[in-house]
């Protein structure tokens, strides 16, 4: 029994950490700059597959067998997610933020189709198995626990990076861009460079989250990157925790992940024939929760605290 509880605890906290990474990545894009990325699933998936292909065992059915160490897989994951972010950012960041949102669902759609159809690369719907866990050899039998530490180490790193960026002059420019988009757009190229940097950084963190997920679960398939789990849930996490606040992003991630996985345990007691309905009911509940937060507490649990209050401007129209 203890082992089951411990096992579940590790599972809960590790995936909570993966979501915390996603929320931190989104926070750089939305919280700091107000860029609407509705394609989180795409960057998450690209990171996971990049890591799996770079470090996984050889399989004649798909690309892979490079046998690289996990840390290189993680770097590769961040790199390829950042590359995708750069491409989409160059096209859409010059335009108003709604267009980025629309374009990002397009990117997510393309990534989803590639994952499903390009068997030579991703093994299609069968997915990729046997993705190695780090420190498995050092610590036999407790690979899960080691992965938990690795994931939360990454969360801590991302948090520090985000936090420092937020306080730096770079972060101040980003907030200026967010609070006054027309003026920032009038700044032209300069503002574009800042937005692009923030967008790419956020995408890299999302790719890292994908890599962490792949190494923890050991098996990935297109199903794991459904926009409901991989995009929408992350949005609700950041908004619940507090956009612009990194502690809030982590708190929101754990809280909403708790609600999401907790309700899954509850609906698990229901008869099998209503399981899909129960799943839909959980999505519905999260959707209603989002509306409630937006209406009742739009600033989230931990509102953004700008390092220099003088810079604060009215964000309402």
């Amino acid at each position: 029994m203890e082992a089951v509880i411990l096992g579940y605890g590790v599972f809960f906290l590790t995936l909570g950490g993966v979501y915390a990474l996603l929320a931190l990545g989104l926070n750089v894009q939305w919280g700091y700059v107000g860029m609407l990325n509705v394609g989180i699933a795409a960057f998450f998936a690209v990171g996971a597959y990049a890591s799996a292909i770079l470090t996984g065992p050889a399989d004649p059915a798909h690309l892979g067998g490079f046998g690289l160490p996990v840390w290189l897989g993680m770097s590769g994951a961040a790199f390829f997610a950042a590359l995708l972010g750069l491409a989409i950012g160059l096209v859409t960041l010059r335009l108003r933020s709604d267009y980025l949102a629309i374009a990002s669902i397009g990117i997510a759609e393309i990534v989803r189709l590639v994952l499903k159809n390009e068997d030579w690369l991703t093994n299609g719907v069968r997915g990729i198995a046997g993705i190695p866990r780090p420190f498995e050899a050092l610590w036999p039998g407790n690979g899960g626990l080691a992965m938990l530490l690795v994931v939360w180490g990454l969360v801590f790193l991302a948090f520090l990076l985000n936090h420092r960026a937020h306080r730096s002059p770079w972060g101040r420019v980003l907030r200026g861009i967010r609070d006054n988009e027309p003026a920032a757009r009038a700044m032209g190229k300069n503002s574009l460079a800042f937005r692009l940097q923030a967008f790419v950084l956020g995408c890299a963190v999302m790719g890292l989250a994908g890599s962490a997920y792949a190494h923890f679960v050991g098996f990935i398939s297109p199903e794991a990157f459904d926009p409901v789990f991989a995009t929408f849930l992350v949005w609700v996490m950041l908004i619940a925790g507090g956009s612009g606040n990194n502690t809030g992003a982590i708190l929101g991630a754990l809280l909403i992940w708790g609600v999401w996985s907790g309700t899954e345990i509850l609906t698990g007691y229901l008869p099998a024939e209503v399981q899909t309905q129960a799943g839909a009911l959980r999505v519905l509940a999260i959707g209603v929760l989002l509306q409630a937060i937006l209406i009742l507490r739009p600033e989230g649990l931990l509102p953004e605290r700008p390092p220099r209050p003088v810079w604060r401007k009215e964000t309402s129209r």
Partner: peptide, 23 residues
């Protein structure tokens, strides 16, 4: 509020409607 909040809200509404149809 800023129109972007409406966009995020509509994303939530989309999922609510879809879940209702699934249920």
């Amino acid at each position: 509020r800023r129109p972007i909040v409406l966009l995020i809200s509509s994303f939530g509404v989309a999922l609510i409607l879809r879940s209702l149809i699934q249920i």
